[in-house]
């Protein structure tokens, strides 16, 4: 006892405090160590494995809060396999390997196509829109621009894109296919439902870049590059159908063949365009190029 007092007395106040803290720390560490072993919650190791495979972009395209949410969901319900758009077929096959599943051949990856090709100069405006700079707000007004179907160019889709793959260029929302992951957020953001997620069977896809169901006369009055529903394309290639004053492309029937090229070249307004990583720029409408040749 005398010795202990002596030892304590020999240690100065600072050292004493340090030793007590050290002792306390040791005791708590032992308690935590025991608790972590005793109260362990078993975690499915596959969740971590699947999470590692996913692209860690947390884009929400799958409908779950982030990649970890999707990892949990896909293990619980393997039918969700392939919902990860940015990961694509690669991620799907690796998840399948982890979960010991066999996947059927997946279709081509989907990429967005904007069904409008009109830039500001091509469009008709009845008046100047000065309201809130958002497509949704402008779309709620009757005539922010004459065409009720075309791109408004206020960039609701640009704000929705997490990958910097969309830009409004000269009043038209334009996809940068080198950056696009196909998550589909833009397609959900567009108040006019102009952005369609299309399976890209080829590097470039041909499409009718218009959604106007106006008759030919009105479409011409509102836009220089709108589809007037003339039906010339449908005569050239069976991939095109015309209904409701509007031509549509059946992507399942599309192939980069001469017939489709001919349809694209015959189109009087140049509304049939190619979209994709290496797509050529769209052709000028016939009336415009004739004018240019004259002038």
């Amino acid at each position: 006892m005398i010795m202990l007092t002596g030892v304590l007395g020999a240690i100065s106040g600072v050292w004493l405090a340090g030793l007590i803290m050290l002792g306390l720390g040791l005791v708590f560490a032992i308690v935590l160590l025991v608790a972590s072993e005793k109260l362990k919650v078993p975690v499915d190791p596959r969740i971590t494995q699947v999470y590692e495979v996913l692209p860690h972009l947390d884009c929400g395209a799958c409908g779950y809060p982030g990649c970890s949410g999707y990892a949990k969901a896909v293990i619980a319900n393997p039918e969700l396999l392939g919902q990860c758009a940015p990961g694509g077929a690669d991620a799907a096959s690796r998840i399948a390997a982890i979960l010991n599943l066999r996947i059927s051949a997946s279709g081509p990856a989907k990429r967005p196509i904007v069904h409008c090709r009109a830039h500001t100069a091509d469009r008709t405006y009845f008046a100047q829109y000065q309201g809130i700079p958002s497509c949704t707000a402008a779309n709620a007004l009757a005539n922010a621009q004459a065409c009720k179907f075309g791109c408004l160019g206020f960039g609701d889709c640009v704000r929705a894109c997490k990958f910097d793959a969309l830009h409004v260029i000269d009043g038209l929302s334009t996809v940068d296919y080198t950056k696009c992951t196909g998550c589909g957020a833009c397609s959900k953001a567009c108040p006019r439902n102009l952005i369609e997620m299309v399976p890209f069977s080829y590097e470039n896809m041909m499409t009718v870049a218009c959604r106007s169901r106006e008759n030919g006369k009105s479409t011409r009055a509102f836009c220089q590059v709108g589809c007037i529903g003339c039906g010339l394309c449908a005569k050239q290639s069976e991939a095109f159908t015309v209904a409701d004053n509007l031509a549509r492309m059946d992507y399942a029937k599309y192939a980069p063949c001469g017939e489709n090229e001919a349809a694209m070249n015959k189109c009087p307004t140049g509304v049939i365009v190619c979209r994709g990583k290496t797509a050529p720029p769209p052709r000028e409408p016939k009336a415009k190029s004739a004018e240019a040749a004259k002038g």
Binding site: I132, S134, A137, A140, P191
Partner: peptide, 15 residues
């Protein structure tokens, strides 16, 4: 544009 924003918000919600 308070009313404008509120109107826009209602459309967002509906969508």
């Amino acid at each position: 544009e308070l009313t404008g924003y509120i109107k826009t918000g209602k459309i967002f919600l509906a969508r």
